[in-house]
Simulated assay, not measured.
Amino acid sequence: MSRSLVGVVLIALALYLGVGVLLLVFQRSLIYFPQPRAIGGPDRQLMLPVTDEQIVVTVRPLASSRALIYFGGNAEDVSRSLPDFAEAFPDHALYLLHYRGFGDSTGKPAEEAIQHDALELFDKVHALHGEVAVVGRSLGSGVAIRLASQRPVARLVLVTPYNSVLELAQRQFPIYPLRWMLQDKYESWRYAPAITAPTLLIVAGHDEVIPRWSSEKLFAQFRSGVARREVISDAGHNDIGGRPEYLRLIRDAL
């Protein structure tokens, strides 16, 4: 092998290893984009009783047997959904979780920590309200589906859902062994077969973030008769919440 070819190989190897190290070290910075809270004061906040961090939930308290828990996307301030949700679901108490590092919640976001907080929130809400529906959007669809496989969720709505974050990441970086590198895999397909709550998947027809095939693969994992899907044909990943069908579909599902 010529000296020049050896040099090219070494440079390529160095680049490969360098990018791999960056992916390994900064992987969560590529998944989570924490946002500050824009809406709601202390009277619109609930603190979760977790011991290691301060976890904040934006709420609309209501003396009702029905409640809705919402898990947002990876760059979403969930408090911004409060006004629309309050109008669309007047008979539901509302609980919108700020992930660790988002809003006024402390700590750093990570899959297992977020999932722990989701279970804590559900148990607290279920103790107050007999019927608890769960809505998860984008990243939050993975949080919601895993929760619904472990708790008695009354209704489940998954907005722009994915089959697996690991699968999506592997397609972005096919030359890296992400199965062993990625810490937060969000493998929703693992939990779909255990879901018994009536489930609605809302898919964006022009989703530029979550490919349609990923949502379809997830839909195929549910047992027959448990889930149905609706496609908002002219919606993209980030603007689906502004479509008139969006809240109507959720309201009908609940």
Rank of each mutant, 00 (worst) to 15 (best):
V25E: 07
L23Y: 06
G18M: 04
F71L: 11
D77P: 04
I31C: 02
L30H: 06
V50Q: 04
V56W: 09
F26M: 07
Y16M: 02
Y70I: 01
T51G: 13
G18A: 04
S65Y: 01
L46M: 15
L62E: 12
G20H: 10
F71G: 03
I69A: 00
V21N: 09
L13K: 08
S65G: 08
N74G: 07
F26C: 04
T58E: 00
S29V: 05
Q35M: 15
V78I: 05
G72V: 04
V25H: 05
D77E: 03
F26Q: 10
A63R: 09
R44T: 14
V21F: 13
R44E: 15
R66A: 04
L48Q: 14
G73M: 07
G72M: 06
S65R: 11
A67S: 08
F33R: 13
L17T: 12
A75P: 04
S29C: 04
F26T: 09
I39C: 10
V21I: 15
G18I: 02
V50Y: 00
R44G: 15
L23G: 08
Q35C: 03
Y70A: 01
I39T: 10
A14E: 00
A75W: 10
Y70L: 05
V56P: 03
T51F: 12
A75D: 08
V50A: 03
S65H: 10
F33G: 05
E53R: 15
D77N: 08
E76I: 08
V57M: 04
L23K: 08
P61G: 01
G41I: 07
E76P: 02
F71S: 03
F33K: 09
L24A: 13
A63I: 05
P36D: 00
I39G: 06
G40Y: 11
A38H: 13
S64G: 00
A63N: 10
A12M: 11
P42W: 02
G73H: 04
V19E: 02
L15H: 06
L62Q: 06
A12I: 11
V78T: 11
T58V: 15
M47G: 08
T58A: 14
G18R: 09
L48A: 14
G18C: 03
A75Y: 12
D77Y: 09
I69F: 03
P42C: 01
V59T: 14
P42L: 12
N74Y: 00
A12N: 02
F33M: 05
V21T: 15
G40I: 11
L46E: 12
L17M: 12
E76H: 09
V50G: 03
F71H: 03
T51S: 15
L48C: 13
F71P: 02
V78K: 12
T51L: 14
R37M: 15
